[in-house]
Design a protein around this nucleic acid. Structure first.
Length: 927
RNA sequence: GCCCGGAUGGCGGAAUUGGUAGACGCGCUGGUCUCAAAAACCAGUUUCUUUUAGAAGUGCCGGUUCGACCCCGGCUCCGGGUACCA
C-alpha cells in the first residue's frame, strides 16, 4: 500500500487536538522559549500559499525546541479589527463581527490542515471585549502618565499635579507639547478646566488640534505609516492635510530609547535601518534669530550651525503661526494667496510637485546673529511645519534645496566651507551646492580656518554663551495619531464633561462597541459611533465617538498570549516573569515602520509602569520574504478566438490574457479546461508548438484578478500537508522574496514517498530490523543529524530539506531498514513533516506523540575520516585528485604530490615555484 | 536623489571561515520494467572546442592573493525603504 497522507494527516491532527499536545503550561521547570508569528488579519479570501511560509518556519523551530527540552510558547490569534470587514459592512449591512468571525473560522480550518503546533488555548482576537478591555486599560494608563526626561521614563500624572501645585512647570524637563511657563501660584489659581488643559500638554495620550492625514474616501484620518506617496496604504485613496482635534500618543518621548534599543536586537540589518530612518535622529543646534521691527525671536533648527555665516535668508513653512504677523503690509495679499494655495493642495499634489520651486517673500527681515546682517524671510512649502520649528536658516552655498531656491529667486549665496587645500570660488557659477560634511571654514568670523567638526562645536559653545541658541537634537518621528473616524475598532474609554475629556474608571471596562444602524458617518460628519443610542457614560456624559487605529490591538498581543484568560490584569507578573519576551518573531517586513515601532513603544511603556519585565519585546526577528504570484498568459490573435503558443507569437499580432494558473502545468495549457473556463472561449482554436500550447509567464502580486492565487487547501488535497510544508521551505531562503511555482512540488512529494518506502516494503508492510547498523549507515545518519541541527540553528530550512533528501537517497541505496538508523531519522524530520514523523514513530512501537522526544544528537566518532581526497591544482586550476591519509604531514604530502605520475605531466620537468598544502582542503602547485 | 539588499545553468537554488562552482530539486534527453500507461528505477544534462582531452565560466571592468561567487575600487541592472526632515 502506498503512503496514505490523507488518512495519516487527519489522524494525527485529531490526536494532537484530543491530547492537547501543544498546550504550554505557565509553570514549568523547563526553560522557556517563545516563538511568535505576526498574527493575521483574516481576510475574506482565506489563506494563500504566501501566508503560511513564515508560520511553517516558526512551527519547525517551535517543534525543534520542544524536542530539545524547552517549554515552548507558540500561540496564534487574529488581528480582528480592520477596514475590509467594515467596508463590506457599509456595502451589505452585515455586521463586521459576523464577517470577521466567519473569516476566522475559515482561517482556523486552513491553519489546522497544515499541521501547526499552535497552543490554541491561548488564542486572542483583538475585537473580543475580553481582549480589548486591556487595550483600553493601556490607553487610560497612557493618559495618566507623562514623560520625564530626568528619570527618562513615564511618570504618573498624579505626581505631576503635586509638582505643579508646589513649583509650577518651570524646572520641569519633560517631553511635552510646547506651552507657557506657569508658577505654582498660576496653577493654584486656575479652575479645573485650565488645569486639565495644562496637563493635556504632558499626557502620553493627549487630545489636540493636529495636522492629520485625512482620507475623505475612507472617511478617516491615517497615521504617517499608513500613507504612501500621498495615498492611503489600504485602497490607494488620496489623502489631504487637515487640522482636526485628535487623540495622539506621545511616542516621540521614546524616540531616543527606541533608537538605543535597536542596538541589542537580533534583527536584520535592513529592518534596523528602516527603523533608524523612521526615528531619524539629527544632531544640531537651535538658533534664535531676531526679527527686524518685532520683539519676537524666530527659533530655527539646523544640523550645521557652523554655516551660520552663510545663511543669507530664512524660510517659514506656510502653516507657521507667525506668517501673518510678520508679513509686511504691502506683501499681505501675495503671502496669504500663497499660504492658501499651499494649504489646499492635496498631499498627492504636494508630493508630485516636490521638484517645483515656489515661495514668496514676506517683506520681513531676520537678523543673522553671527554677523548682524539683515536677511529676508520667505515663505515656502519646502519647509515643513512638522519638523523642527517649521522655520529654517537657509545656507544656499551648502544645501541643495536652499541653493535651488536662492538661484531661482536671485538671493545672494556665500561660500563658508571650502575643501581642504582648495580656494573659494564664486558660488553664483556653481551648478549645485557644495554639501560639505568635511572641509575648512572660510568667511566665517572667528571659526574661519577651523575644520567643520570643530567649527560646529565652537559655534554651539558661542551660541550657548551668548544665550541665543543651544545644541539640540531633533527626531523625524512624529507623535502617533490615535483616533480613527471608523466603526470597527476599539472604543476609547473616554467621556466629555464641559468639553474636557475624562477617562472611565477601570472598573467600567470593557467599554463595549455599541450597535449602530449604519456603519457610516452621521449627516453632520461625525463618526459612526455618534449613531449609537445612549452613547453616554453612567452619569450621562457623552462618550468619545472616535475609535482606535489598527495598531492599537497589535501593540501588546504578544504579552496577552502569556496569560490570555486573565480577567483581573493584562497579564500576571508571574506569567510575564516566566515567559519574559519573544525569543523568535517571524513576520513580514511591511510592518517595519508601523507595528514594530508601536509595539516597541507600547512595551517600553508597560515596562516603565512596572508591568513588563523587559523593555524590548522581540529579541530576534526574521522577515520571511513575500511569495509573489506567477501569472500565466495566453496570446489571442487580434480580433479572433485563436490563441498562439508562446514561442510563435513573434509571427503574429497578439495580445496577452491572464489565464488561471490552475489549468496550466509547467507552462503547458490544458486546452479543454481553458475552453470550459469561460463561455467566450468555448470554441477557442489553438496554434500549437510540438503539439502543445505553451503559456507565457510573469511575476506579479498574487491576486484574484490576475488568476494566479494558489490556496494551500488544493495542494494539501493533492500532496498532503507534509509535502506542502517541505516544499515551501525548499523554495529558497526564508527571507527571500520568491515567486510561487508548483513546478518542484512533485520532487518533494517523491521524496516523502521514498522516505515512507525506507520503512515499508512494496506492499506497505512495516519492515524494520533490529540489526546493528554498519559504519556507512551510521555515518550517513550522524552527518545528517549534524547538518540538520546546524541548518535549523541558522534558519536555513531550504538546505535542511536538501539534506534530508540526500540522507534518504543514500539510505535507500544501501537498502537500510535498521531501527537504530531509522528511528532517530523519524524524530529528526518530525519538525518539518510532523504527520509522517508521528506515524513512523507510532509504527516503531511508541504509544505517545514524539513531540517531546529528545532530538537526535550526533557523535563525532562516526564521522572520523582516515584520508582525504585532495583536489590538486596547478596555478589555481584543478587538474586531478589524490587521496592521502589525514595524519600525513604537509612535507610528505608535498613530496608525494610532486612525485606522482599526474604531476609530472604538468610540471614538465621544471621545479615548482611553490607548493601550498592546506590540510583537508586543497593542494595548489605554483609553476 | 539618498539608504539598504541582490545578480550563480533552461528554472528554484547550494557552496557556513578566501580552498574541488553548480549540492538538492524541477525540467529536458535516453534507457529499464510494462500489451500499454501510471508509479518506480538507471544514465546523462554550465557553455564551447579539434571530445580518452582541453578551454572559458558566478551581471560588467579592474585590483589584492598561491588561490576570489566570497575581499577591495569603479560601473550596470533588478528589488525594497525613504524622500523637500533643515
Amino acid at each position: 500500500m502506498e503512503y496514505n497522507f490523507k488518512e495519516i494527516e487527519k489522524k494525527w491532527q485529531e490526536f494532537w487536538r484530543a491530547h492537547n499536545t501543544f498546550v504550554a503550561p505557565n509553570h514549568s521547570s523547563k526553560p522557556k522559549y517563545y516563538v511568535l508569528d505576526m498574527f493575521p488579519y483574516p481576510s475574506g479570501s482565506g489563506l494563500h500559499v504566501g501566508h503560511p511560509l513564515g508560520y511553517i518556519a516558526s512551527d519547525i523551530y517551535a517543534r525543534y525546541m520542544r524536542h530539545r527540552g524547552y517549554n515552548v510558547l507558540h500561540p496564534m490569534g487574529f488581528d480582528a479589527y480592520g477596514l475590509p470587514a467594515e467596508q463590506y459592512a457599509i456595502q451589505t449591512g452585515t455586521h463586521p463581527q459576523i464577517t470577521t468571525y466567519k473569516n476566522i473560522d475559515r482561517y482556523r480550518v486552513q491553519l489546522d490542515k497544515i499541521g501547526f503546533s499552535f497552543d490554541w488555548s491561548r488564542e486572542v482576537r483583538t475585537s473580543d471585549p475580553h481582549y480589548y478591555k486591556w487595550t483600553q486599560w493601556t490607553f487610560i494608563q497612557l493618559f495618566e502618565h507623562w514623560y520625564s526626561n530626568k528619570t527618562n521614563k513615564a511618570e504618573p500624572i498624579a505626581e505631576l499635579i503635586k509638582t505643579f501645585a508646589a513649583e509650577g512647570n518651570k524646572g520641569l524637563d519633560a517631553t511635552c507639547t510646547e506651552c507657557d511657563i506657569f508658577s505654582a501660584g498660576d496653577w493654584n489659581s486656575w479652575n479645573e478646566q485650565q488645569q486639565q488643559e495644562a496637563l493635556m500638554n504632558y499626557r502620553l495620550a493627549y487630545l489636540s488640534d493636529t495636522w492629520v492625514n485625512w482620507c475623505p474616501d475612507l472617511g478617516t484620518v491615517l497615521a504617517n505609516d499608513e500613507v504612501k506617496d500621498g495615498l492611503s496604504e489600504r485602497g490607494g485613496h488620496p489623502v489631504e492635510r487637515k487640522l482636526m482635534k485628535q487623540w495622539s500618543l506621545r511616542i516621540t518621548a521614546y524616540a531616543q530609547r527606541l533608537l538605543d534599543g535597536l542596538k541589542e536586537l537580533e534583527w536584520t540589518e535592513s529592518l534596523l535601518e528602516i527603523q533608524k530612518h523612521w526615528i531619524g535622529r539629527s544632531e544640531g543646534a537651535s538658533v534664535n534669530f531676531s526679527i527686524k521691527g518685532h520683539d519676537k525671536v524666530l527659533e530655527v533648527f539646523t544640523t550645521r550651525p557652523d554655516t551660520l555665516w552663510g545663511a543669507t535668508f530664512m524660510v517659514l513653512a506656510p502653516e507657521h503661526e507667525w506668517v501673518e504677523e510678520i508679513t509686511a503690509p504691502d506683501k499681505k495679499d501675495e503671502v496669504m494667496a500663497y499660504v492658501e494655495m499651499a494649504k489646499n493642495r492635496s498631499e498627492r499634489e504636494r508630493v508630485a510637485e516636490v521638484k517645483k520651486i515656489s515661495g514668496v517673500f514676506t517683506g520681513a527681515y531676520g537678523i543673522n546673529p553671527a554677523n548682524g546682517e539683515e536677511i529676508p524671510i520667505w515663505i515656502a512649502d519646502y519647509v515643513l511645519m512638522g519638523y523642527g520649528t517649521g522655520a529654517i536658516m537657509a545656507v544656499p552655498a551648502h544645501d541643495s534645496r536652499d541653493f535651488a531656491f536662492a538661484k531661482h529667486f536671485k538671493i545672494p549665496i556665500i561660500q563658508v566651507v571650502a575643501k581642504e587645500g582648495e580656494q573659494s570660488s564664486e558660488p553664483a557659477g556653481w551648478d549645485d551646492s557644495y554639501d560639505a560634511k568635511e572641509g575648512v571654514m572660510i568667511n566665517s568670523g572667528f571659526i574661519s580656518g577651523m575644520p567643520v567638526k570643530d567649527a560646529i562645536r565652537a559655534t554651539i559653545d558661542k551660541l550657548e554663551k551668548d544665550n541665543i541658541g543651544f545644541g539640540s537634537v531633533n527626531f523625524r518621528l512624529r507623535d502617533a495619531i490615535f483616533s480613527r473616524q471608523r466603526y470597527w475598532g476599539e472604543p476609547f474609554p473616554v467621556y466629555y464633561k464641559d468639553g474636557m475629556p475624562y477617562m472611565l474608571d477601570v472598573s467600567e471596562l470593557p467599554l463595549e462597541l455599541p450597535e449602530v444602524d449604519k456603519y457610516l458617518p452621521t449627516e453632520s460628519g461625525e463618526p459612526p459611533l455618534a449613531r449609537a443610542q445612549n452613547w453616554v457614560n453612567k452619569d450621562g456624559y457623552p462618550l468619545e465617538t472616535n475609535t482606535m487605529p489598527g495598531f492599537a490591538g497589535s501593540s501588546a498581543y504578544y504579552y496577552r498570549y502569556m496569560d490570555p484568560n486573565n480577567d483581573k490584569e493584562y497579564f500576571s507578573k508571574e506569567a510575564n516573569q516566566y515567559w519574559q519576551d519573544v525569543d523568535l518573531y517571524i513576520g513580514g517586513d511591511e510592518h517595519a515602520s508601523g507595528h514594530l515601532i508601536y509595539a516597541r513603544f507600547w512595551s517600553m511603556f508597560l515596562f516603565d509602569i512596572g508591568l513588563a519585565c523587559k523593555e524590548e519585546p522581540f529579541k530576534k526577528l526574521i522577515n520571511q520574504g513575500k511569495i509573489q504570484g506567477r501569472s500565466n498568459f495566453v496570446y489571442r490573435l487580434q480580433g479572433s478566438n485563436t490563441f498562439v503558443s508562446l514561442n510563435l507569437i513573434k509571427d503574429y499580432n497578439t495580445s496577452p490574457i491572464h489565464v488561471d494558473i490552475n489549468m496550466v502545468d509547467n507552462d503547458v495549457l490544458d486546452q479543454d479546461a481553458f475552453r470550459s473556463w469561460r463561455p467566450e472561449f468555448k470554441d477557442a482554436e489553438f496554434i500549437l508548438e510540438d503539439g502543445k500550447y505553451i503559456c507565457g509567464w510573469e511575476i506579479e502580486k498574487m491576486s484574484k484578478s490576475k488568476h494566479n492565487v494558489q490556496n494551500p487547501d488544493e495542494l494539501i488535497e493533492k500532496y498532503g500537508a507534509d509535502t506542502l510544508r517541505l516544499y515551501e521551505m525548499f523554495l529558497g531562503p526564508l527571507e527571500h522574496h520568491k515567486p510561487w511555482d508548483t513546478k518542484g512540488i512533485e520532487g518533494v512529494f517523491r521524496f516523502i514517498r521514498k522516505l515512507w518506502r525506507l520503512y515499508h516494503d512494496n506492499d506497505g508492510t512495516f519492515m524494520i530490523t533490529d540489526e546493528d547498523p554498519n559504519a556507512a549507515e551510521l555515518k550517513i545518519l550522524h552527518r545528517t543529524i549534524k547538518k540538520i541541527r546546524e541548518d535549523i540553528e541558522r534558519f536555513s530550512f531550504n538546505t535542511a530539506v536538501s539534506t534530508f533528501m540526500i540522507c534518504v537517497n543514500e539510505l535507500s541505496d544501501l537498502e537500510c531498514r535498521k531501527k537504530q538508523i531509522l528511528e532517530p531519522l523519524a524524530v529528526l524530520i518530525a519538525p518539518y513533516a510532523p504527520h509522517i514523523g508521528e506515524e513512523l514513530w507510532h509504527q516503531l512501537g511508541h504509544e505517545n506523540t514524539l513531540t517531546y522526544s529528545a532530538y537526535p544528537e550526533w557523535d563525532g566518532k562516526y564521522l572520523v575520516e582516515e584520508s582525504f581526497l585532495y583536489p590538486v591544482s596547478f596555478n589555481g586550476k584543478l587538474r586531478f585528485k589524490l587521496e592521502f591519509p589525514l595524519d600525513m604531514s604537509r612535507e610528505e604530502i608535498e613530496k608525494a604530490v610532486l612525485e606522482s605520475e599526474e604531476a609530472q605531466r604538468w610540471l614538465e620537468n621544471k621545479p615548482p615555484k611553490k607548493v601550498i598544502v592546506v590540510p583537508k582542503r586543497i593542494i595548489n602547485v605554483v609553476i
